[in-house]
Design a protein around this nucleic acid. Structure first.
Lengths: 234, 234
DNA sequence: GAATGAAAATTGGTCTGACCAGATTGGTCG
DNA sequence: CGACCAATCTGGTCAGACCAATTTTCATTC
């Protein structure tokens, strides 16, 4: 997908303006003819751009004019651009992303433990061991944690969660990579998480297993927020 | 939004064909000129339709042809149409929808209990009482449960979860309303859930509170699946 | 001044035909 | 068989035209 087409540029610009609340919900955008003049483009290119925004749930196109819809009706595909509106990421939104990843991962953990066969359980144990060995530096242990979470997703095999996770992750990582954060988790906390994961695996207790995943994300969230806060204090 | 525009009809048709795997991932769709001939439409209308599908993550448009992308890269906006592919809803997908609603609601419950003020806690107690009084027939108690879950969402105020929930709910309800299901939950199970909700509210224990929400959805899922299975057995 | 209805203007919906840039395919040659 | 080139095909975009639906303006009445 070549994102430099004119229609995409127009759509991106209008999306940013809408997310910046330059237009209120219910208000009309400039007409297609005016937008075409503004962007020195054909009406066709503008219409394609508006089709994209319509699919994002940001606008409602009807004869008489294009109207902006309430943000609550938008697709999750606007969350990455929302996070990218400012030079520094919105702390609350970052936290909400991570909370949602946590909930999705906990659901995968719960379901994976429910359906896993003997071989898959053994694989999970091996991955928890690898995660344990990888330490508390997020950058260094990222690979192992990501692999573990992705294996849970694969075993759980929930398409709804997969689509949500893929979409949110792509948007979040795309934005947060620019921050080059150095995150360190507390050694004891990670050890507790790993212990709970192992306990869940041994006892087959889905609550323990999924709560361990939640606690891992609690630690990650706290560390990310703290690091970003230190950035702001500078 | 007038969904009867030609470009939407074309997009809907192509989306269905893609979801039915008439085209494999990586394969090219017919050319815009061929599609225009097939749909007796202008190339402009076809291009608008393809812009919509591109935004859905279903296709990748580039010079040389439009290619189908792997389903895992698609937006959650394809889940409703996926559920609507057959006369009877796919049981697994229905279960996955409900699992995801459960996870989102549990997250809202957890977070709401964390941030709620005195007045909001009192409102939650009143709503749990209303839910208790409304009985075990899902159709009759739906209003109270929905209001309760929406209040949790409002208190938690997680935009990411809100957008996911709104999108999935619209698609799911739009499809399932056609089934006109009669769902009844077990009286004891509902009473247990309500008791746990109250316990969570009194003790401030977020695990108990959110697990109660999960258990409610467990019951709902089991009942929905059972009812749909009885449909299939006929 | 407010309400109503009709006419005019504006807006989206779609078409046709043209041209350009990039990708694909098929043929030829070593 | 592999490399190269030309022809063809495909998407990207444009301008101008016309029709259907909505909004705005204006005139009339109370």
């Amino acid at each position: 997908m070549n994102t430099t087409t004119l229609s995409h540029e127009i759509a991106d610009t209008l999306r940013t303006e809408i997310l910046r609340q330059q237009y209120r919900s219910g208000e009309r955008l400039p007409s297609e003819r005016d937008l075409a003049a503004r962007f020195s483009a054909s009406r066709g290119a503008v219409r394609e751009a508006l089709s994209q925004l319509d699919q994002l749930g940001l606008i409602s196109i009807q004869p008489g004019g294009v109207r902006v819809k309430p943000i609550e009706e938008a697709s999750i595909a606007i969350l990455g651009p929302l996070l990218s509106l400012s030079d520094t990421p919105n702390l609350l939104l970052v936290d909400q992303f991570l909370q949602t990843f946590a909930a999705m991962s906990a659901l995968n953990a719960r379901e994976a433990l429910t359906v896993a066969n003997t071989e898959q359980l053994a694989q999970m144990r091996a991955m928890v061991a690898a995660v344990h060995k990888s330490g508390t530096e997020v950058a260094a242990s990222q690979k192992e944690w990501v692999e573990f979470m992705e294996y849970l997703a694969e075993v759980a095999d929930n398409l709804v969660v997969r689509l949500i996770g893929n979409d949110l992750k792509a948007q979040f990582v795309n934005r947060m990579v620019k921050e080059e954060l150095k995150i360190t988790l507390k050694k004891k906390a990670v050890a507790d998480v790993v212990q709970s994961l192992n306990e869940g695996l041994e006892t087959g207790d889905r609550d323990i297993f999924s709560n361990a995943v939640l606690h891992y994300f609690d630690q990650l969230r706290a560390a990310v927020i703290e690091t970003l806060n230190q950035r702001l204090a500078i």
